[in-house]
Design a binder for these strands. Structure first.
Lengths: 231, 231
DNA sequence: GGATGGATCTCGCTT
DNA sequence: AAGCGAGGTCCATCC
């Protein structure tokens, strides 16, 4: 890892072209070759960057560039595409290099995949007698998160989201349309399940006869732990 | 802007929970309060972060933490949500602060809008006798990218994407439904045009009687250049 | 390796 | 303020 705080201008060309005029910025060059250019605001997205694998080379400063105060010119080229970053550096305020080693990585908990696991394992949340047919039930336009049947044997397609918005209802509607063409399944009803369901999504779901279910992640995880403890 | 290179562990809780075990990392604290934690690999996305507006506070190091070598504990709290980041810092390798000022910003020049211009100019790509009615043809739910008529005078609504996915087909479907209510236009057929069309989107389009058209950006640009050169 | 859909998405525009 | 569309999206997962 090398970090430069410096005045620089940047030109990117590749999928689009973009230009950053000369200003004070942070250049972060990672061990894998990737380069990030950050300003003192904005979110985690850099102003400009190059993803690995790529190579950094330095070329001679031309006469007119030197006159403009430029002391270094870096060219960062992506190894596989034509993407390219040209960084022209004037004053360097700081320049530090340090080996950080390999990161042990991020441990996540509470994303959509986890909700799906939990609901599949606790399918009776939907009511007594419900049973799981399968997770990721395939259709021509992609898998439905969960297919289940209620105590009367009626098929239920469940779409799970962390945050339930209108797109999710549209998605479930498409699945239901397709699944209902299958005489072995029809009639299929739908359940839209999420930790939080936006009012618009709820309205659209109701309009289409789709039931909404709010999932309490902490409770579900608690039940799961309790189940585990029984064995 | 303050940059720390240090050994630290991080815990995020908010929309999900995530944990980073103790390791060497870069902590970037921006002027707007946002905090980024980077490792020496990966892409431009930090391992963990907090977006502005947020506040950073430091609390006392507890006895057991001190024993584990921790020298500072930062709590970064989002101002509007319950999102929170706890950073426990052990050894500090570098600690630099510098005011970068406000960035003049990025100047972009995209490819996406260009596709619409090119197709409008080369509408006969659709077949001989096709003519443009107009780009950005207005409807109650937003403008259709292109409205054209074929050699028989039949109206054609065209939705253009750089990458054609299922959402785009949905969008075009909504436009077609509305346009077909207009007796001066109906029947309106649809064309889904993109540089690349995903199989699922293609399937859904076919199912709805929408034609798919793959656009070759380089060829179209070449034709455009050739056209320009004629004048 | 390609395809697919989530994301603490971010970002910008429109209503 | 909220919704919608796009992104140099990135990214894991599944086939």
């Amino acid at each position: 890892m090398r970090i430069l705080i410096c005045d620089c201008s940047v030109d990117y060309s590749g999928r689009l072209t973009a230009h950053l005029p000369m200003a004070s910025r942070v250049i972060m060059a990672k061990n894998d070759g990737s380069v990030l250019i950050h300003s003192d605001g904005g979110s985690y997205k850099p102003l400009n960057w190059m993803t690995a694998p790529c190579t950094i080379s330095e070329r001679e400063v031309e006469a007119d560039e030197a006159e403009a105060g430029i002391t270094q010119v870096w060219t960062v080229k992506h190894t596989k595409t034509a993407d390219q970053l040209v960084i022209k550096i004037a004053t360097v305020h700081d320049d530090i290099s340090r080996d950080l080693g390999i990161d042990p990585g991020l441990e996540k908990d509470g994303v959509e995949a986890h909700l799906q696991e939990l609901l599949a394992a606790q399918i009776e949340i939907l009511g007594p007698g419900h049973r799981l047919v399968r997770r990721e039930y395939p259709t021509a336009i992609g898998p439905v998160d969960i297919l289940a049947r209620n105590s009367d044997g009626v098929a239920i397609a469940i779409e799970i989201k962390r945050r339930g918005e209108i797109d999710g209802v549209e998605q479930l509607t498409r699945y239901l349309e397709l699944l209902n063409r299958d005489p072995l399944l029809a009639p299929v009803t739908g359940i839209f399940a999420a930790q939080e369901i936006k009012p618009q999504a709820r309205t659209l779901a109701r309009d289409r006869g789709i039931e909404c279910l709010t999932l309490d992640y902490d409770t579900m995880r608690g039940l799961d732990d309790a189940d585990s403890r029984l064995f």
